[in-house]
Design a protein around this nucleic acid. Structure first.
Lengths: 138, 138
DNA sequence: AACCTACTTTATAATGATTCTAAAGTAGTG
DNA sequence: CACTACTTTAGAATCATTATAAAGTAGGTT
């Protein structure tokens, strides 16, 4: 359980002013025990119900994008019309449950070492991510 | 180089009527030597320039979606605002060049065996895909 | 060859996520 | 307290995609 001061320091150290809105968003994202997977819409709903402030959609977009840029959030690759984000910014992978549109973390250690035998000259690798799509058994 | 009759047979055998538009789209997609990665917009441009028919955007969307459903096309997971498709429908993986938004195939054999040590009870695995994001060296 | 019917195509409108705008508000510094 | 740059905001704009409903067509039937 992190507190307000921690969030303020984190924001400052990343060059973001600790505004009321950003602190509320930090609370919604990081004041929880498990890592959190969400869409902008999910986050907006949570903020509306749990917070007294009303935070505009534009601010939520701006803040999530800013958090992504300073590596507070990770964007996850799924072919969906919406963007998914993850509070777990470490290298790891995901299950995506197509029946419920939910994401589940798959730790690096839960996957054997990935050997890439092909290289692309003149390019550097930014990330290697596995997406395992799953569905309910019928 | 596949010809019109081949496309007509393929379409019929999948329960799709071989219309002028669908045959033109087949040509654009499959009458080429390498596998083809594209967005709807890419395909629309190609059809506009290479084909005499004018094919409406709605038809392109419908057809690409139909082709995906009958496994003529594969949709690829990238966090992009657009959907990417691949004429290579076999199990394989991708590089995504963030500098140019281009996809490059990564054959199954180019990746060591992927061992998933975590399982999700009550779910079956539909696909396991790796996305390697790359960037130009500075 | 005219006819029927279900499947297709099409232009256009509608939707939904995301981004832009420009005006009002606020944090941090002096 | 004043100033300035950074933020927030409501609402408009944009872009990909999907829905609508009217006109067109394939393929079988007489």
């Amino acid at each position: 359980m992190e507190n307000k001061e921690t969030f303020i320091k984190k924001l400052r150290s990343s060059g973001l002013r600790p505004t009321r809105q950003r602190i509320e968003i930090c609370r919604a994202l990081y004041d929880r025990k498990k890592t959190f997977h969400f869409t902008i819409n999910d986050l907006a709903k949570i903020l509306k119900s749990k917070s007294n402030e009303k935070i505009s959609l534009a601010t939520i977009y701006n803040t999530v994008c800013a958090f992504k840029n300073i590596n507070y959030l990770k964007e996850i690759s799924i072919n969906s019309n919406k963007s998914y984000f993850d509070t777990n910014v470490s290298n790891h992978h995901h299950f995506f449950n197509e029946s419920t549109d939910e994401l589940i973390d798959l730790k690096n250690d839960d996957v054997g070492n990935i050997k890439l035998k092909k290289k692309i000259p003149g390019k550097k690798i930014k990330s290697v991510e596995i997406l395992v799509k799953i569905k309910d058994n019928n």
